[in-house]
Simulated assay, not measured.
Amino acid sequence: MSPLLEAEQAVLGAVLLDPGQLRQLDWLAPEHFHRPVHRALFAAVRKLHANGHAALAADTSVPLSWVTDTVAEAGRHVRGLTASHAHSLISACPRPGHAPVYGRMVLEGAIHRSVTAHAIRLHQAARADALQGDVEGSLRCADMLREVLSDLARRWGTEPRPVDPGTPPAPTPSAAPPSGWATGAEEEQVLLGVLAERPKGMEEVVGWLRPADFADPARGEVYRCLGALHHRGEPIDRITLLWEAQRRGLLADGTLSRDQLAAICDGVGPGSAEWLGEQVMRSSVTRTAAASARAIRALAENEALAPGRLINHALHALSPLDEVRTRWQAANGRPAPNPPAALPSGPPSAQVHAALARSASRPISPPSAPSGSAASSAAVRPPSRGHG
């Protein structure tokens, strides 16, 4: 039996033995339990507690009706539940007074499961958008995942903020997409040809399109060369582009070849740089969403990762998608959505009051004051308080 299952049994056994423990578990919800029967039982005790069951008024032993009524209420939602199962939960609880600790174990398991499920959903939405030429599903799932992370942070008692895990648990967004992924390679090739043939098109895309938005790193480097020539105000054609690639060492290290550059410059056809750039950006959004989803899922499947760190690392894994999303909105002439409101956080009010007291203006000693006046001036200074 897994430790998580034992924790679920223990917290249920604790509230069946001592209904008063529910007052310390208001942050725990039925959906945080993994097993359906456990979810039904916890929902039942919460309902009976809210309705003022007679067991709550017991001064000594808890009446048997508390257990039988709980089983009857839970049995309306799951099948096969008997009183013997409830008594087995009671026997599985070592200490009813440890219910809050058992509850945090249950919540920790729920956090990992919930983050994993939403990461899978985000990846599926990104895959569907890539095949359909859309991004809205990916962005909706990303927003939902962010809201879930904020809610889980509130329940866990931590401040949701992006924190770099140090070593990426999954490939970066610029990594090659999985096999069968719609990459938009044709649009990338045509866009580079249009920009090489009609350099004025750079003005239409340079503000929001980046080399990392190209699925093929080699084509991304060609775009970087075009951007460098445009930035310096130098002419752009097949020769200058080849020269810039050579100066950057792209020919020497095998990133590009003369034939690849010739195919880009000579294979140009009609096309709008802005429209083609938007297609490349759309592919970049879905690809980045999928990479963020893979990174978050890898984090969530690490059972050794504490919930607070998991939440903050997952928020950091969404940061590349936020950056690409902002540029996607700019490419379409739409303002980026307002960032989600931060959860209320900050030091306790007593610490705020102490900080304001220390910040208050102090009387200035007159120039003629004796040297010993420093001590008297310090006497009126509000005492410092530690930030425990």
Rank of each mutant, 00 (worst) to 15 (best):
A374V: 07
P366I: 00
A354N: 08
S345W: 05
S384F: 08
G372H: 09
V352P: 02
A378M: 04
S373I: 01
A350R: 11
S376I: 13
S376D: 10
V352Q: 11
R358I: 02
R362C: 00
P367E: 15
A375T: 10
A369R: 04
A374N: 09
R381P: 02
P367C: 13
P382Y: 04
G346H: 07
S361W: 01
P366G: 02
S376A: 15
R381A: 00
P348L: 01
S384N: 09
S359W: 10
R385W: 06
S361Q: 03
A360F: 04
R385A: 08
V380E: 13
S373T: 05
H353W: 05
Q351E: 13
P370N: 14
A374H: 02
A369D: 05
I364R: 10
S384Q: 12
S376M: 13
R362G: 00
P348V: 00
R362A: 04
H387M: 14
S345I: 03
A369I: 05
S365N: 07
S365W: 02
A369P: 10
V380S: 14
P383F: 08
S345T: 14
A369K: 03
P370L: 12
A378Y: 03
P366R: 02
R381S: 09
R362L: 01
P383L: 13
S361K: 00
P367T: 14
A379K: 02
S349C: 03
G372W: 07
A360K: 06
S359C: 04
A375H: 04
S345N: 08
P363G: 00
R358S: 07
G372L: 07
S349A: 15
H387D: 14
S368Q: 15
P367I: 14
G372F: 03
P383W: 08
S365G: 13
G372P: 05
S345Y: 07
A379D: 02
V352M: 11
R381Y: 06
A355L: 05
S365K: 04
P366F: 01
S371A: 15
A354R: 10
G372K: 06
A369T: 11
A379N: 03
A369H: 07
P367F: 15
P367W: 14
P367L: 15
P363E: 00
